[in-house]
Design a protein around this nucleic acid. Structure first.
Length: 422
RNA sequence: GGAGAGGUGGCAGAGUGGUCGAAUGCGCGUGCUUGGAAAGCACGUGUUCUCGCAAGGGAACCGGGGGUUCGAAUCCCUCCCUCUCCGCCA
Protein backbone atom coordinates (compact mmCIF):
# COMPACT_ATOMS: atom_id res chain seq x y z
CA UNK A 1 0.00 0.00 0.00
CA UNK A 2 1.25 3.45 -0.81
CA UNK A 3 1.08 6.38 1.60
CA UNK A 4 -2.44 7.83 1.36
CA UNK A 5 -1.00 11.26 2.15
CA UNK A 6 1.26 11.06 -0.88
CA UNK A 7 -1.71 10.43 -3.11
CA UNK A 8 -3.56 13.29 -1.42
CA UNK A 9 -0.73 15.79 -1.72
CA UNK A 10 0.87 14.83 -5.03
CA UNK A 11 -1.44 12.69 -7.15
CA UNK A 12 0.61 13.52 -10.24
CA UNK A 13 3.61 11.76 -8.78
CA UNK A 14 1.54 8.63 -8.26
CA UNK A 15 0.04 8.98 -11.71
CA UNK A 16 3.49 9.07 -13.29
CA UNK A 17 4.55 6.01 -11.31
CA UNK A 18 1.57 4.00 -12.45
CA UNK A 19 2.27 5.01 -16.04
CA UNK A 20 5.83 3.74 -15.69
CA UNK A 21 4.48 0.38 -14.56
CA UNK A 22 2.01 0.37 -17.44
CA UNK A 23 -0.86 -0.40 -15.13
CA UNK A 24 -4.35 0.98 -15.30
CA UNK A 25 -5.73 2.38 -12.07
CA UNK A 26 -8.60 4.78 -11.71
CA UNK A 27 -6.77 7.27 -9.51
CA UNK A 28 -9.47 9.91 -9.69
CA UNK A 29 -11.92 7.66 -7.92
CA UNK A 30 -9.34 6.81 -5.25
CA UNK A 31 -8.78 10.53 -4.64
CA UNK A 32 -12.53 11.11 -4.56
CA UNK A 33 -12.96 8.29 -2.02
CA UNK A 34 -10.21 9.79 0.10
CA UNK A 35 -12.01 13.13 0.15
CA UNK A 36 -15.33 11.49 0.91
CA UNK A 37 -13.78 9.44 3.68
CA UNK A 38 -12.26 12.45 5.38
CA UNK A 39 -15.56 14.29 5.25
CA UNK A 40 -17.30 11.29 6.79
CA UNK A 41 -14.67 11.07 9.53
CA UNK A 42 -15.20 14.71 10.44
CA UNK A 43 -18.92 14.21 10.41
CA UNK A 44 -18.85 11.27 12.79
CA UNK A 45 -16.22 12.76 15.06
CA UNK A 46 -18.08 16.03 15.53
CA UNK A 47 -21.27 14.20 16.32
CA UNK A 48 -19.54 11.88 18.75
CA UNK A 49 -17.85 14.79 20.47
CA UNK A 50 -21.20 16.38 21.22
CA UNK A 51 -22.67 13.06 22.30
CA UNK A 52 -19.77 12.47 24.62
CA UNK A 53 -20.07 15.92 26.19
CA UNK A 54 -23.80 15.44 26.77
CA UNK A 55 -23.29 12.01 28.30
CA UNK A 56 -20.66 13.31 30.65
CA UNK A 57 -23.06 16.02 31.77
CA UNK A 58 -25.73 13.37 32.35
CA UNK A 59 -23.46 11.50 34.71
CA UNK A 60 -23.68 14.40 37.15
CA UNK A 61 -27.49 14.48 37.05
CA UNK A 62 -29.48 12.52 39.62
CA UNK A 63 -31.03 9.53 37.92
CA UNK A 64 -34.76 9.22 37.52
CA UNK A 65 -35.44 12.93 37.70
CA UNK A 66 -37.58 14.45 34.96
CA UNK A 67 -34.58 16.36 33.57
CA UNK A 68 -32.65 13.13 33.39
CA UNK A 69 -35.47 11.39 31.57
CA UNK A 70 -35.75 14.28 29.16
CA UNK A 71 -32.06 14.10 28.46
CA UNK A 72 -32.28 10.36 27.81
CA UNK A 73 -35.02 10.93 25.28
CA UNK A 74 -33.01 13.67 23.63
CA UNK A 75 -29.83 11.63 23.45
CA UNK A 76 -31.67 8.66 22.01
CA UNK A 77 -32.08 10.59 18.80
CA UNK A 78 -28.42 11.63 18.76
CA UNK A 79 -27.39 8.04 19.36
CA UNK A 80 -29.44 6.84 16.42
CA UNK A 81 -27.87 9.50 14.25
CA UNK A 82 -24.35 8.52 15.31
CA UNK A 83 -25.03 4.92 14.42
CA UNK A 84 -26.35 5.88 11.05
CA UNK A 85 -23.33 8.05 10.25
CA UNK A 86 -20.94 5.37 11.47
CA UNK A 87 -22.41 2.88 9.05
CA UNK A 88 -21.93 5.39 6.26
CA UNK A 89 -18.33 6.00 7.37
CA UNK A 90 -17.51 2.30 7.45
CA UNK A 91 -18.92 1.87 4.00
CA UNK A 92 -16.79 4.66 2.52
CA UNK A 93 -13.78 3.54 4.51
CA UNK A 94 -13.92 0.02 3.16
CA UNK A 95 -14.28 1.22 -0.42
CA UNK A 96 -11.40 3.65 0.09
CA UNK A 97 -9.20 0.95 1.58
CA UNK A 98 -9.92 -1.45 -1.24
CA UNK A 99 -9.17 1.27 -3.76
CA UNK A 100 -5.87 2.06 -2.06
CA UNK A 101 -4.89 -1.61 -2.08
CA UNK A 102 -5.27 -1.52 -5.85
CA UNK A 103 -2.67 1.23 -6.21
CA UNK A 104 0.76 -0.21 -7.04
CA UNK A 105 4.02 0.82 -5.45
CA UNK A 106 6.01 3.60 -7.06
CA UNK A 107 9.02 2.42 -9.09
CA UNK A 108 12.40 3.85 -8.11
CA UNK A 109 13.95 6.52 -10.35
CA UNK A 110 16.64 4.05 -11.46
CA UNK A 111 14.06 1.62 -12.87
CA UNK A 112 14.24 1.63 -16.69
CA UNK A 113 11.26 2.52 -18.83
CA UNK A 114 9.65 -0.37 -20.61
CA UNK A 115 6.61 -2.53 -21.02
CA UNK A 116 7.61 -6.13 -21.68
CA UNK A 117 10.31 -8.60 -20.64
CA UNK A 118 12.25 -7.52 -23.75
CA UNK A 119 12.63 -4.09 -22.18
CA UNK A 120 14.45 -5.41 -19.13
CA UNK A 121 18.05 -4.28 -18.96
CA UNK A 122 20.74 -6.95 -18.96
CA UNK A 123 22.90 -5.62 -16.19
CA UNK A 124 25.65 -8.22 -16.29
CA UNK A 125 26.61 -11.60 -17.72
CA UNK A 126 28.63 -14.16 -15.78
CA UNK A 127 30.28 -17.32 -17.03
CA UNK A 128 30.35 -18.39 -20.64
CA UNK A 129 26.92 -19.57 -21.63
CA UNK A 130 27.95 -19.73 -25.27
CA UNK A 131 30.61 -22.33 -24.62
CA UNK A 132 29.76 -25.33 -26.84
CA UNK A 133 28.36 -28.25 -24.90
CA UNK A 134 27.76 -31.00 -27.45
CA UNK A 135 26.34 -33.40 -24.87
CA UNK A 136 23.86 -30.96 -23.39
CA UNK A 137 20.25 -32.09 -23.37
CA UNK A 138 17.06 -30.72 -21.88
CA UNK A 139 17.11 -32.33 -18.45
CA UNK A 140 13.97 -34.38 -19.12
CA UNK A 141 15.69 -36.04 -22.07
CA UNK A 142 18.75 -37.15 -20.15
CA UNK A 143 19.02 -40.96 -20.20
CA UNK A 144 17.78 -42.35 -16.91
CA UNK A 145 16.11 -39.09 -15.88
CA UNK A 146 12.89 -40.91 -15.06
CA UNK A 147 14.69 -43.04 -12.48
CA UNK A 148 15.67 -40.01 -10.37
CA UNK A 149 12.75 -37.72 -11.18
CA UNK A 150 9.42 -39.52 -11.41
CA UNK A 151 6.76 -37.27 -12.88
CA UNK A 152 4.14 -39.88 -13.86
CA UNK A 153 3.95 -41.33 -10.37
CA UNK A 154 3.84 -37.83 -8.91
CA UNK A 155 0.89 -37.13 -11.19
CA UNK A 156 -0.78 -40.36 -10.06
CA UNK A 157 -0.26 -39.73 -6.38
CA UNK A 158 -1.00 -36.01 -6.35
CA UNK A 159 -1.27 -34.36 -9.75
CA UNK A 160 0.79 -32.83 -12.52
CA UNK A 161 3.60 -30.68 -11.21
CA UNK A 162 4.21 -32.74 -8.07
CA UNK A 163 7.13 -35.01 -8.98
CA UNK A 164 8.96 -37.52 -6.83
CA UNK A 165 12.71 -37.00 -6.38
CA UNK A 166 14.50 -40.31 -5.86
CA UNK A 167 17.98 -41.49 -4.90
CA UNK A 168 20.67 -39.13 -6.16
CA UNK A 169 17.88 -36.93 -7.47
CA UNK A 170 16.54 -36.42 -3.97
CA UNK A 171 20.05 -36.20 -2.56
CA UNK A 172 20.87 -33.34 -4.92
CA UNK A 173 17.84 -31.40 -3.69
CA UNK A 174 18.97 -31.84 -0.11
CA UNK A 175 22.56 -30.94 -0.99
CA UNK A 176 21.48 -27.73 -2.71
CA UNK A 177 19.25 -26.71 0.19
CA UNK A 178 22.01 -27.30 2.70
CA UNK A 179 24.50 -25.48 0.52
CA UNK A 180 22.19 -22.48 0.13
CA UNK A 181 21.37 -22.26 3.81
CA UNK A 182 24.98 -22.67 4.91
CA UNK A 183 26.12 -19.97 2.50
CA UNK A 184 23.32 -17.62 3.49
CA UNK A 185 24.03 -18.06 7.18
CA UNK A 186 27.68 -17.35 6.51
CA UNK A 187 26.60 -14.16 4.72
CA UNK A 188 24.92 -12.99 7.90
CA UNK A 189 21.35 -14.23 7.59
CA UNK A 190 19.74 -15.99 10.54
CA UNK A 191 18.17 -19.28 9.60
CA UNK A 192 14.47 -19.66 10.28
CA UNK A 193 12.16 -22.61 9.82
CA UNK A 194 8.72 -21.03 9.51
CA UNK A 195 5.16 -22.37 9.35
CA UNK A 196 4.24 -23.36 5.81
CA UNK A 197 0.61 -22.41 6.17
CA UNK A 198 -0.43 -18.84 6.81
CA UNK A 199 -3.73 -17.16 7.62
CA UNK A 200 -5.56 -14.64 5.47
CA UNK A 201 -4.20 -11.66 7.40
CA UNK A 202 -0.64 -12.69 6.62
CA UNK A 203 -1.38 -13.35 2.97
CA UNK A 204 -2.96 -9.93 2.73
CA UNK A 205 -0.04 -8.15 4.36
CA UNK A 206 2.43 -9.41 1.77
CA UNK A 207 0.08 -8.83 -1.13
CA UNK A 208 -0.95 -12.39 -2.05
CA UNK A 209 -4.47 -11.37 -1.13
CA UNK A 210 -6.42 -9.93 -2.71
CA UNK A 211 -4.04 -9.30 -5.64
CA UNK A 212 -3.23 -12.94 -6.38
CA UNK A 213 -6.34 -14.66 -5.19
CA UNK A 214 -6.50 -18.15 -6.63
CA UNK A 215 -2.75 -18.60 -6.91
CA UNK A 216 -2.50 -20.26 -3.52
CA UNK A 217 -3.76 -23.59 -2.25
CA UNK A 218 -6.33 -23.07 0.46
CA UNK A 219 -7.29 -25.49 3.25
CA UNK A 220 -10.67 -26.13 4.83
CA UNK A 221 -9.43 -24.15 7.83
CA UNK A 222 -8.94 -21.10 5.60
CA UNK A 223 -5.19 -21.40 5.79
CA UNK A 224 -3.02 -20.94 2.74
CA UNK A 225 -0.07 -23.12 1.74
CA UNK A 226 2.80 -20.67 1.35
CA UNK A 227 3.75 -19.75 -2.23
CA UNK A 228 7.10 -18.58 -0.85
CA UNK A 229 8.78 -18.28 2.55
CA UNK A 230 8.53 -14.54 2.03
CA UNK A 231 5.00 -14.68 3.40
CA UNK A 232 5.55 -16.20 6.85
CA UNK A 233 8.94 -14.50 7.13
CA UNK A 234 7.71 -10.98 6.38
CA UNK A 235 4.77 -11.45 8.72
CA UNK A 236 7.04 -12.40 11.61
CA UNK A 237 7.16 -8.76 12.71
CA UNK A 238 3.65 -7.84 11.62
CA UNK A 239 2.03 -5.22 13.89
CA UNK A 240 5.26 -4.70 15.79
CA UNK A 241 7.49 -1.76 16.56
CA UNK A 242 11.18 -2.70 16.52
CA UNK A 243 14.06 -0.88 18.16
CA UNK A 244 16.04 1.01 15.57
CA UNK A 245 19.24 -0.60 16.87
CA UNK A 246 18.17 -4.08 15.74
CA UNK A 247 18.06 -2.99 12.07
CA UNK A 248 18.95 -4.36 9.66
CA UNK A 249 17.42 -7.76 10.44
CA UNK A 250 18.60 -10.45 8.00
CA UNK A 251 16.92 -13.81 7.82
CA UNK A 252 16.80 -16.80 5.53
CA UNK A 253 14.38 -19.69 5.43
CA UNK A 254 13.86 -22.87 3.51
CA UNK A 255 10.28 -23.90 2.77
CA UNK A 256 8.56 -25.91 0.13
CA UNK A 257 6.56 -23.47 -2.03
CA UNK A 258 3.10 -24.20 -3.35
CA UNK A 259 1.70 -22.49 -6.39
CA UNK A 260 -1.39 -23.36 -8.37
CA UNK A 261 0.08 -21.73 -11.49
CA UNK A 262 -3.28 -21.60 -13.17
CA UNK A 263 -2.87 -20.69 -16.81
CA UNK A 264 0.70 -21.83 -17.36
CA UNK A 265 1.38 -24.02 -20.35
CA UNK A 266 3.88 -25.19 -22.98
CA UNK A 267 7.65 -25.14 -22.67
CA UNK A 268 7.41 -23.22 -19.39
CA UNK A 269 6.07 -26.26 -17.61
CA UNK A 270 8.29 -28.96 -19.10
CA UNK A 271 10.28 -30.98 -16.61
CA UNK A 272 11.44 -29.06 -13.57
CA UNK A 273 10.84 -25.62 -15.07
CA UNK A 274 7.59 -24.92 -13.29
CA UNK A 275 6.14 -27.05 -10.51
CA UNK A 276 3.20 -26.77 -8.16
CA UNK A 277 5.49 -27.69 -5.28
CA UNK A 278 9.14 -26.78 -5.16
CA UNK A 279 11.85 -26.08 -2.62
CA UNK A 280 13.31 -22.65 -2.16
CA UNK A 281 15.46 -20.72 0.27
CA UNK A 282 14.33 -17.15 0.68
CA UNK A 283 16.37 -14.19 1.92
CA UNK A 284 14.63 -11.42 3.79
CA UNK A 285 15.71 -8.06 5.12
CA UNK A 286 14.07 -5.48 7.34
CA UNK A 287 16.08 -2.30 7.04
CA UNK A 288 16.17 1.39 7.84
CA UNK A 289 14.62 3.34 4.94
CA UNK A 290 17.86 5.21 4.30
CA UNK A 291 19.74 1.94 3.73
CA UNK A 292 17.34 -0.02 1.56
CA UNK A 293 18.97 0.54 -1.83
CA UNK A 294 22.42 -0.35 -0.56
CA UNK A 295 20.88 -3.42 1.02
CA UNK A 296 19.24 -4.36 -2.29
CA UNK A 297 22.63 -4.43 -4.01
CA UNK A 298 24.06 -6.56 -1.20
CA UNK A 299 21.10 -8.89 -1.35
CA UNK A 300 21.57 -9.37 -5.08
CA UNK A 301 25.26 -10.09 -4.57
CA UNK A 302 24.43 -12.64 -1.87
CA UNK A 303 22.20 -14.49 -4.33
CA UNK A 304 24.73 -14.14 -7.15
CA UNK A 305 27.48 -15.65 -5.05
CA UNK A 306 25.53 -18.91 -4.84
CA UNK A 307 25.42 -19.21 -8.62
CA UNK A 308 29.08 -18.32 -8.90
CA UNK A 309 30.05 -21.03 -6.42
CA UNK A 310 27.96 -23.50 -8.39
CA UNK A 311 29.89 -22.45 -11.52
CA UNK A 312 26.70 -21.79 -13.42
CA UNK A 313 26.51 -19.17 -16.19
CA UNK A 314 23.95 -16.54 -15.30
CA UNK A 315 22.83 -13.03 -16.05
CA UNK A 316 21.38 -10.22 -14.00
CA UNK A 317 18.35 -8.36 -15.30
CA UNK A 318 17.20 -5.02 -14.05
CA UNK A 319 13.47 -5.20 -14.49
CA UNK A 320 11.73 -2.44 -16.41
CA UNK A 321 8.70 -0.62 -15.04
CA UNK A 322 6.21 -2.74 -16.95
CA UNK A 323 7.64 -6.11 -15.90
CA UNK A 324 8.46 -5.64 -12.26
CA UNK A 325 5.38 -6.45 -10.32
CA UNK A 326 2.85 -4.63 -8.26
CA UNK A 327 4.55 -4.02 -4.95
CA UNK A 328 8.19 -3.72 -5.88
CA UNK A 329 10.01 -0.41 -6.17
CA UNK A 330 13.01 -2.01 -7.83
CA UNK A 331 13.72 -5.57 -8.82
CA UNK A 332 16.56 -7.66 -10.21
CA UNK A 333 16.06 -11.10 -11.67
CA UNK A 334 18.84 -13.66 -11.72
CA UNK A 335 18.60 -16.07 -14.63
CA UNK A 336 20.67 -19.19 -14.98
CA UNK A 337 21.64 -20.66 -18.34
CA UNK A 338 20.18 -24.08 -19.06
CA UNK A 339 22.45 -25.39 -21.79
CA UNK A 340 20.18 -28.24 -22.88
CA UNK A 341 17.08 -26.13 -23.32
CA UNK A 342 19.24 -23.26 -24.51
CA UNK A 343 17.27 -20.80 -22.45
CA UNK A 344 17.54 -18.67 -19.35
CA UNK A 345 15.67 -19.79 -16.25
CA UNK A 346 14.74 -17.37 -13.49
CA UNK A 347 16.14 -18.64 -10.20
CA UNK A 348 16.02 -15.54 -8.06
CA UNK A 349 14.14 -12.32 -7.88
CA UNK A 350 15.60 -9.66 -5.59
CA UNK A 351 13.32 -6.80 -4.72
CA UNK A 352 13.09 -3.68 -2.64
CA UNK A 353 9.52 -3.10 -1.53
CA UNK A 354 10.40 0.05 0.38
CA UNK A 355 7.51 0.66 2.81
CA UNK A 356 4.86 -0.95 0.60
CA UNK A 357 4.66 -4.23 2.51
CA UNK A 358 5.58 -2.63 5.82
CA UNK A 359 2.57 -0.33 5.59
CA UNK A 360 0.21 -3.21 4.91
CA UNK A 361 1.81 -5.29 7.62
CA UNK A 362 2.41 -2.41 10.03
CA UNK A 363 6.07 -3.23 10.60
CA UNK A 364 7.78 -0.23 12.15
CA UNK A 365 10.79 0.84 14.11
CA UNK A 366 11.13 3.52 16.73
CA UNK A 367 13.30 6.28 15.33
CA UNK A 368 16.10 7.21 17.69
CA UNK A 369 16.00 10.72 16.33
CA UNK A 370 12.32 11.49 16.73
CA UNK A 371 11.22 8.80 19.15
CA UNK A 372 8.32 8.11 16.79
CA UNK A 373 7.52 4.87 14.96
CA UNK A 374 8.40 4.80 11.26
CA UNK A 375 7.80 2.13 8.66
CA UNK A 376 10.75 -0.14 7.88
CA UNK A 377 11.70 -1.08 4.36
CA UNK A 378 11.46 -4.76 3.44
CA UNK A 379 13.49 -6.57 0.81
CA UNK A 380 13.47 -10.14 -0.29
CA UNK A 381 15.13 -12.39 -2.78
CA UNK A 382 15.48 -16.06 -3.48
CA UNK A 383 18.67 -17.64 -2.40
CA UNK A 384 17.79 -19.78 -4.42
CA UNK A 385 14.96 -21.79 -6.01
CA UNK A 386 16.02 -25.42 -6.18
CA UNK A 387 14.41 -27.13 -9.21
CA UNK A 388 15.61 -24.69 -11.83
CA UNK A 389 19.11 -24.54 -10.40
CA UNK A 390 19.00 -28.32 -10.40
CA UNK A 391 17.80 -28.40 -14.01
CA UNK A 392 20.62 -26.09 -15.10
CA UNK A 393 23.11 -28.17 -13.17
CA UNK A 394 21.97 -31.37 -14.88
CA UNK A 395 21.99 -29.81 -18.32
CA UNK A 396 25.24 -27.84 -18.07
CA UNK A 397 27.29 -30.48 -16.29
CA UNK A 398 26.18 -33.57 -18.21
CA UNK A 399 29.21 -35.62 -19.17
CA UNK A 400 29.67 -37.77 -22.29
CA UNK A 401 29.23 -40.85 -20.12
CA UNK A 402 25.80 -39.71 -18.95
CA UNK A 403 26.84 -38.75 -15.45
CA UNK A 404 26.59 -35.23 -14.05
CA UNK A 405 29.58 -33.50 -12.52
CA UNK A 406 28.88 -31.94 -9.13
CA UNK A 407 30.43 -28.46 -8.69
CA UNK A 408 33.34 -28.42 -6.24
CA UNK A 409 31.53 -26.20 -3.74
CA UNK A 410 28.64 -28.66 -3.61
CA UNK A 411 30.67 -31.84 -3.25
CA UNK A 412 30.91 -31.64 0.56
CA UNK A 413 27.11 -31.43 0.71
CA UNK A 414 26.43 -34.05 -1.95
CA UNK A 415 29.10 -36.45 -0.75
CA UNK A 416 30.48 -37.44 -4.14
CA UNK A 417 31.77 -35.82 -7.30
CA UNK A 418 29.28 -37.23 -9.78
CA UNK A 419 25.56 -37.84 -9.87
CA UNK A 420 24.64 -41.05 -11.62
CA UNK A 421 21.42 -41.81 -13.47
CA UNK A 422 22.26 -45.54 -13.50
C1' G B 1 -11.42 -33.61 20.76
C1' G B 2 -13.85 -32.90 26.13
C1' A B 3 -14.06 -29.82 30.85
C1' G B 4 -12.58 -25.42 33.26
C1' A B 5 -9.87 -20.56 33.89
C1' G B 6 -8.27 -16.31 31.62
C1' G B 7 -6.82 -12.27 27.78
C1' U B 8 -6.37 -4.45 30.52
C1' G B 9 -0.76 0.44 28.74
C1' G B 10 6.85 -1.65 28.03
C1' C B 11 5.92 -5.19 32.37
C1' A B 12 3.13 -6.45 36.85
C1' G B 13 -1.70 -5.51 38.33
C1' A B 14 -6.63 -2.71 39.97
C1' G B 15 -11.04 -1.60 37.88
C1' U B 16 -18.17 -5.19 36.97
C1' G B 17 -22.64 0.43 33.55
C1' G B 18 -21.51 7.07 34.02
C1' U B 19 -16.10 12.93 33.38
C1' C B 20 -11.87 5.62 32.83
C1' G B 21 -7.17 6.45 28.15
C1' A B 22 -7.94 3.80 32.50
C1' A B 23 -5.69 3.50 40.02
C1' U B 24 -1.12 1.64 42.01
C1' G B 25 3.78 -0.41 41.56
C1' C B 26 8.00 -1.37 38.48
C1' G B 27 10.52 0.29 34.29
C1' C B 28 11.84 4.53 31.27
C1' G B 29 12.73 10.09 30.45
C1' U B 30 13.67 15.16 32.29
C1' G B 31 14.70 18.20 36.41
C1' C B 32 15.93 19.12 41.69
C1' U B 33 19.32 17.20 45.30
C1' U B 34 24.95 15.33 45.30
C1' G B 35 31.89 16.07 44.69
C1' G B 36 29.61 11.87 41.95
C1' A B 37 26.06 8.09 42.46
C1' A B 38 22.13 5.66 45.09
C1' A B 39 18.00 6.96 47.76
C1' G B 40 14.46 10.77 47.92
C1' C B 41 11.38 14.53 45.67
C1' A B 42 8.81 16.90 41.31
C1' C B 43 7.08 16.48 36.54
C1' G B 44 6.53 13.52 32.35
C1' U B 45 6.09 8.76 29.80
C1' G B 46 1.07 4.58 24.23
C1' U B 47 -0.79 4.12 19.16
C1' U B 48 -3.71 5.61 15.04
C1' C B 49 -6.69 8.93 12.47
C1' U B 50 -8.55 13.83 11.61
C1' C B 51 -8.94 19.49 11.52
C1' G B 52 -5.17 23.47 11.70
C1' C B 53 0.46 27.40 8.71
C1' A B 54 1.10 26.86 13.85
C1' A B 55 -0.29 26.97 18.81
C1' G B 56 -3.73 23.72 19.64
C1' G B 57 -8.59 21.15 19.05
C1' G B 58 -11.36 16.58 18.14
C1' A B 59 -12.18 11.12 17.58
C1' A B 60 -10.95 5.95 18.15
C1' C B 61 -8.39 1.96 20.62
C1' C B 62 -8.79 -2.33 27.59
C1' G B 63 -7.54 -9.88 22.30
C1' G B 64 -10.83 -9.39 17.11
C1' G B 65 -15.84 -8.66 15.38
C1' G B 66 -21.00 -7.83 16.47
C1' G B 67 -25.06 -6.52 19.95
C1' U B 68 -27.76 -4.19 24.35
C1' U B 69 -27.81 1.02 26.40
C1' C B 70 -28.70 8.01 26.55
C1' G B 71 -23.74 6.00 28.09
C1' A B 72 -19.61 -0.26 27.80
C1' A B 73 -12.85 -2.01 29.85
C1' U B 74 -17.33 -3.36 32.67
C1' C B 75 -23.55 -6.77 30.37
C1' C B 76 -24.80 -10.34 26.02
C1' C B 77 -23.30 -13.17 21.42
C1' U B 78 -19.37 -14.90 18.43
C1' C B 79 -14.43 -15.81 16.79
C1' C B 80 -9.17 -16.02 18.00
C1' C B 81 -5.36 -16.90 21.46
C1' U B 82 -3.08 -18.48 26.30
C1' C B 83 -3.09 -21.58 30.70
C1' U B 84 -4.80 -26.10 33.76
C1' C B 85 -6.89 -31.07 33.78
C1' C B 86 -8.58 -35.36 30.77
C1' G B 87 -8.30 -37.96 26.06
C1' C B 88 -5.36 -38.87 21.62
C1' C B 89 -0.70 -38.78 19.28
C1' A B 90 4.70 -37.86 15.58
Amino acid sequence: MIDPKLLRDSPDLVRAAIAKKHLVVDLDSVVALDTAWRAAVQDVENLRASQKAANNAMAALPKGTPEFQAKVAEMKAVSAQVKEREVALKDVEEKWRQALLAVPNLPHASVPEGRTPEDNVIQSLHGNHEEPRPHALPHWEIAGFERLYDFPRGAKVTGAGFPFFIGDGARLVRALLNFFLDEDVRAGYTEVSPPIFVNAASATATGQLPDKEGQMYETVDKLYAVPTAEVPLTNFFRDEILEEAVLPVLRCAYTPCFRREAGSYGKDVRGLNRLHQFDKVELLKWVHPSASYDELEKLRLDAERLLQKLELPYRVLLMCGGDMGFGQAKKYDLEVWAAGQKRWLEVSSCSNFEAFQARRAQIRFRSKETGKPELVHTLNGSGLAVPRVLAALLENNLQPDGRVRIPTALVPHFGKEFLSFQ
